[in-house]
Design a protein around this nucleic acid. Structure first.
Lengths: 277, 277
DNA sequence: TACGGCGATACCCGCCGGGTATCGCCGGTG
DNA sequence: CACCGGCGATACCCGGCGGGTATCGCCGTA
């Protein structure tokens, strides 16, 4: 199988429409149909069932969609890492606005290592760090359990902390010394924010769709939503947002993740710095 | 990058000789040279330095070799898993001759699960199980720490045990109640077996090159080598091989491994059966 | 019944991936 | 020192395949 065929299949499987997929790929529809048909013939399986409305995935098609995405990521990673090879700099991906203190400490500790190398910090939207790692555009990433997925990555735990509720300053609940998760569920005036799913789409619901922390803070300050976030976010609160501890919220673990088998000197140094020797 | 180009590059990088690589690929040398040159041009990096003796990898070339192998594995996995999709059977890879009792128990426990599916057991040579998993030719594998690599796989520990030395029956050391690793190092009459490295090649040395347990047992019985293996191998000893405990050998953990993100029903059932509910 | 949108088919073209022949370079060897 | 052999690069050619356009058959809908 050639990567071109995989790209074609992913486009069709995502659009479920040959014409739209062809347009997205910048080509005409007939060669795309032929390419998919050839792929099915070679695999000996139907991937899509077509009718005059469009197409639908078969079981094998769903399998190939998932597998093709990871294979294409691996190819993209091969390309990106080769391009970056020799360029002596470390790319570290981190959620914008999260674990800022920890990140600063980590960067300082690494910079103090002998033989350390410039670190290019890429601040990401929610869930983007994993993609950057898997695509080879970053050497390491700061992730947060239980929010981010770490399947297929090597990791090192850095820090664990509780969570606090962030509410608009002056909201009645800010008078409480503590809150429970149940207190925050289904508040009519503060609908829960809708965080992106791993595929980048947002679930349905009344609350605002969120992409990063800056957005979230501003929406909380505006009284449009509330959120439960790790304790460490308190260091960067302005006075239009109030924090109340939520003891029954799951604890959050910050960890450093990197692609398995990567064994570069700078990455090893970063891990050593992160572990505090 | 197309997978064809990656296959070409891997062939050249492994042979370090364009002519041989071309022969291995079943093609002529000039188009191969051109393809590699085009790849380098597109990546903007030298991958190989050529002289009239052959070629050598640059730093970027070494990176691409590693990355290309994993990318090609991912593509092969996409193909294999799609081909197997719908075929309702589990493929379980296990080292031939290792953990036989555990394997039997696991198979029995899984077969007792409601909705269980036929299990195709693939008995492998040393280190082959990981490859089968990564290539998508197996759904799960039994691996042994610290021998097998589990990077990039999800795992569940099943069992931990000590190790015993296997010696030819009648060898002087079999008179001892216990041995230490040091006792077995550099025995002139029983040179240590040479296990394959992850890439399939064998290290140099005086001992015999080993591919699987059957080979190993026979060579021990013949008085050509000795080995340190998990306790559980005693259940299948014939009387021409003797076992002596080695308390200072590292403990061996048997674990069940599967590719990250695989979420098929049969695999989930197998994991449940392995965990004993 | 006409129409519009879907994927499939028929047919054509140009490019690129493959081939052969040959070159330039170098190192070993009689 | 001249020659040879093996290496990768270059020059040149060809056929197939990946892409295009035009059109068809099917079906749901107005």
């Amino acid at each position: 199988m050639e990567t071109r065929e995989l790209r074609y299949f992913v486009a069709v499987a995502e659009e479920l429409n040959f014409g739209r997929a062809a347009r997205r790929l910048g080509m005409a529809q007939p060669p795309l149909s032929r390419a998919i048909a050839r792929l099915e013939r070679r695999l000996g399986t139907e991937l899509l069932v077509r009718d005059s409305h469009g197409a639908a995935l078969t079981g094998a098609g769903r399998v190939l969609l998932r597998e093709a995405r990871t294979a294409l990521d691996a190819v993209a990673a091969a390309e990106a890492r080769t391009r970056r090879a020799g360029r002596p700099a470390l790319v570290l991906a981190a959620k914008a606005g999260a674990s800022t203190e920890l990140l600063a400490k980590l960067l300082a500790a690494y910079a103090a290592e002998p033989g350390s190398v410039p670190v290019d910090v890429r601040l990401c939207q929610y869930g983007e760090q994993g993609v950057l790692l898997r695509r080879g555009e970053a050497d390491a990433a700061l992730l947060h359990l239980p929010f981010d997925s770490v399947t297929g990555l090597d990791t090192e735990e850095l820090h664990t902390e509780g969570q606090v509720a962030l509410l608009p300053a002056g909201h009645p609940l800010t008078a409480r010394r503590e809150l429970r998760l149940a207190d925050l569920a289904d508040l009519p005036d503060l609908p829960a924010p809708r965080y992106p799913r791993p595929d980048g789409t947002h679930p349905d619901g009344p609350g605002p769709a969120i992409r990063d922390h800056a957005q979230l803070y501003q929406l909380i300050a505006l009284g449009r939503t509330c959120a439960v976030l790790p304790d460490s976010c308190r260091t960067q609160l302005r006075d239009d947002v109030a924090a109340v501890p939520v003891p029954d919220a799951p604890r959050v673990t910050t960890l450093l993740a990197w692609p398995p088998d990567s064994r570069s000197r700078p990455l090893a140094d970063l891990l050593r710095a992160a572990a505090g020797r």
